[in-house]
Each structure stands twice: as C-alpha cells, then as structure tokens.
Computed example of a mutant assay.
Amino acid sequence: MDRPTALVPQHHVSLGARGPEDVVADAHGRVLTGAEDGRILRVHDVGDPRTARVELLAETGGRPLGLEPLPDGGLLVCDAERGLLRVDPVEGAAGTVRVLADSAAGERLRFCSNVVALPDGSVCFTVSSRRYPLEQWIGDIVEHTGTGRLLRLPPEGGEPEVLLDGLQFANGLAVGGGGSFLVIAETGACRLTRYHLSGPLAGHADLFATLPGMPDNLWREGPGGPIWVALASPRVPPLNLLHRTPPAVRAAAARAAVHAPYRPSGTIGVMALDDTGRTVRHLVRRRSGFRMVTSVCAAGDHLVLGSLREPGVAVCARPVAR
C-alpha cells in the first residue's frame, strides 16, 4: 500500500443538527444524510459555503444511519431504532416514511446500520450488534461480541433472511464486482469482508481487505468507481490485546466502557479501494478538529465527510485523478 497522503479540509457546512452519521451523494450531486434528531436532510451546493442550503426530506421518528438513494427517487434508510425504512420525498413538505422490516429471525431489529439495493429488487442491509444499541456501540467494539449480521429483504418483502452471521460490528455495505459480491465493513476487526452473490462461491464469505483502522460506512462511486471507506478510528493496539482475553474479561471491560466518556482520535482518514481490494487512495489528517469520521462520499470536486458526533459535514479537497 502506498504511503497515505494529506486529507485537505476546505470548509464546514452546519446542518442545525448533530450526527450526520452517513453521507451519500445522489445523481444530482446533492448530499443526503440523517441526523441525531431523526431528520433526513439534503444539502445543496455543498462545495460552496456561500450558497450551501439544507433541506428537510423526512423525519423518521428514530435515529437514521445508513442511506441508499433509489432510481425511482425513493430512499432506503437504516434506522437504529425503527429498522429498515423507505422514505418517499414530497416536494415542499416532509416525505412519507414506511417500515419495510423491523424484525428478523424472530428478533427485533435494534441496530440496522447500512443498506444497498440490488438489481433484482432485493435489499441487503447490516445489523451492527444484537447485544448493544447504538448509544452503547463502544460496548460491542470492546466486548468483541461477533453478533453482527448481513440480511436480505426479498423483492416481495416479508421477513428478512440472514445471509451472514458472526460479524464483528457489521457496518458499511457496498456492491462490488459488477453486482457479483457485497463488501461489508467489520469495524471491530479492522477489515472488509466479501460476500459472494453469484458464481461458484455464491453464499460464501472471504477476506476482501485488511485496513489500518476501523472502517465505518462504505460508499460506491458509480458502477466503475472505487469503494470509499471512512476510518472512524486508527487501530488501537491495547484493544487488539483485549480481544484475545476470555469473554468474561471483555464483558467486564465493555460494562466500564459504556459509562466512560469517549474521546475520539484527532487522526482521521478515508480510503478508496478497487474491486480487487487494492488501495487506490489513502488520505489522512492528523490533529483534525472534525472528529470520528463515519462516512465519506464524493460530490463534484470535493470529498464530503460525515460524523456520528459533529454538528455538520466537513468538505475536503478531492485528490486529482492519477
């Protein structure tokens, strides 16, 4: 892997709400995100701080995380409290919100994280933890529960099926290989996992890439573009050691962690990978004022960063193609 290059900040766009956990660009270059207060927002002209404008699309009544724009203008939303949703925007008003799935395998969906739509009409999405809710996410990272899941909702709806279980905090999700596989971010294992949708390995998973930090959301830049990865934190060597201890030790550490104040690292980073798992971009900024980057997308000549904690999005320079 090449040495990382500088991630260059340009400006910040305030949203009037905290926690734009996922950011995605639509076909018109507008940036969509969900906020801590349950609102789904669309940012126009994100590249120009003088004309940037924030528009309300919908209110989920929960905590929206991962988003997926649909060709028909709708929007899929993973809501950490309500499950898998569909939002249909309404011009000049808050759009309608419909629950597509709120349980799987006999359990309530309590921590849906990221979602993609497949050409056959099915929807795949991740559940980060079956043990910890969003507000206690650090407990799952510390305990290393391996209770994350990849699920699939068939085109006709109904009960989602479990495609993959035992994931270490399943998080971001992207389609790769022309639709032949999915890439899943396992935040707790600092890796990307590939799940094969077709071919001789269909239904099986293998390693796609090992990363220098904890991956969060993924965003695919068009069918032939790279998969962008947000690194929510660099690797934490003491955490790697803790993960080798007995389950009781990890559980005790997790109980302490959920009650301790979390101080995110001042080092932030994003990566871009091709369909072979090769790194084509690795951008880093140290001593950043914008902390805990949980998502990244490209909009025009800019990279837009989201965060679970910040009150807006950060806009950075997009590297020149090489």
Rank of each mutant, 00 (worst) to 15 (best):
R130D: 11
Y132W: 15
Y132I: 00
E135R: 15
W137R: 13
I138D: 05
I138N: 10
G139Q: 07
G139I: 01
D140K: 02
D140E: 13
I141V: 15
V142L: 01
V142N: 03
E143M: 02
E143Q: 15
H144P: 05
T145L: 13
G146C: 04
G146Q: 11
T147I: 07
L153I: 06
L153E: 08
G157M: 09
P160M: 03
V162A: 09
V162P: 04
V162R: 15
L164V: 03
G166Q: 12
L167Y: 09
Q168K: 11
Q168S: 13
A170I: 05
N171H: 06
N171P: 05
N171K: 04
N171E: 09
A174W: 04
A174H: 03
G176S: 11
G177P: 00
G179R: 01
S180Q: 13
S180T: 14
F181D: 13
L182G: 07
V183W: 00
I184C: 00
I184S: 01
I184R: 03
T187N: 11
G188N: 10
G188V: 00
G188K: 02
A189M: 01
R191K: 13
R191D: 01
L192N: 14
T193I: 08
T193N: 01
S198V: 01
P200F: 01
L201D: 15
A202I: 00
A202G: 10
H204P: 01
H204A: 11
A205R: 13
L207E: 13
L207A: 14
A209P: 14
T210S: 15
P212S: 12
P212M: 04
G213M: 02
M214P: 06
M214E: 11
P215D: 05
D216M: 04
D216G: 08
N217T: 07
N217V: 07
W219E: 06
W219V: 12
R220W: 06
E221T: 03
E221S: 15
G224N: 14
G224M: 10
G225S: 11
P226A: 03
P226E: 12
